[in-house]
Simulated assay, not measured.
Amino acid sequence: MSTATNPFGLMATPALDLAPTGHLPYVVDQARPHPDTKTVTVLIGRAELDDGKGLCAIWWPVTGVEYDVEAAYDPARISLADAETRLRAQLAERGMQVTEFRNEDAPLTAAQRGPAWIAQYGCNPQCQLDHAGPDGEPGWHSTAPIETQMRDIDSDPDPDGPELPFLGAQVYVSGYRPQAYGRTTKVWVHNGPRTGELTPAKARQVAREMREFAARLDVLCDQAEEIAVGDFEGDPEVYRLDREHEDARIRAITKGRA
Rank of each mutant, 00 (worst) to 15 (best):
T3G: 15
T3Y: 15
P7Y: 03
P7C: 04
L10G: 11
L10Q: 12
M11L: 14
A15L: 05
L16F: 14
D17M: 08
L18H: 03
A19D: 09
H23N: 04
H23R: 04
L24P: 12
P25K: 11
Y26A: 15
Y26W: 12
Q30Y: 14
R32K: 15
H34P: 00
P35D: 11
K38C: 11
T39P: 06
L43R: 07
L43G: 05
I44M: 07
A47T: 15
L49R: 04
D51C: 05
D51G: 06
G54E: 08
G54P: 03
L55W: 10
L55M: 11
I58W: 06
I58S: 08
W59E: 07
W59M: 11
P61L: 09
V62W: 02
V62K: 03
E66R: 07
Y67C: 00
D74G: 06
R77W: 01
S79W: 01
L80C: 09
R88I: 05
R88W: 10
R88E: 14
A89T: 03
A89Q: 02
E93P: 15
Q97N: 10
T99H: 02
E104H: 08
D105W: 11
T109Q: 09
P115H: 04
P115I: 12
P115Y: 04
G122P: 15
C123M: 04
P125Q: 01
L129H: 12
H131R: 10
H131G: 04
P134I: 04
E137C: 02
G139C: 12
G139V: 14
G139R: 13
W140S: 08
S142A: 15
T143K: 12
E147I: 09
E147A: 13
Q149F: 00
R151K: 01
R151H: 01
D152C: 11
D154F: 13
S155L: 02
P157H: 09
D158H: 09
D160F: 05
P165Y: 05
F166V: 08
F166D: 06
L167M: 10
L167I: 01
V173E: 06
G175Q: 12
Y176D: 10
Q179G: 10
G182F: 02
G182S: 02
R183F: 13
T185P: 01
K186P: 13
V187E: 04
V189L: 15
P193M: 10
P193D: 10
P193F: 11
T195R: 14
K202F: 02
A203V: 06
R204T: 12
Q205T: 03
R208P: 01
E209Y: 08
M210N: 11
R211G: 07
A214S: 08
D218Y: 03
L220R: 12
C221G: 13
Q223K: 12
E225S: 15
E226D: 14
V229M: 02
G230C: 01
G230R: 01
D231F: 03
G234R: 05
D235Y: 03
E237P: 08
R240V: 05
L241N: 15
R243V: 09
E244P: 05
E244M: 00
H245V: 05
A248H: 12
I250E: 11
A252H: 01
K255Y: 14
G256H: 12
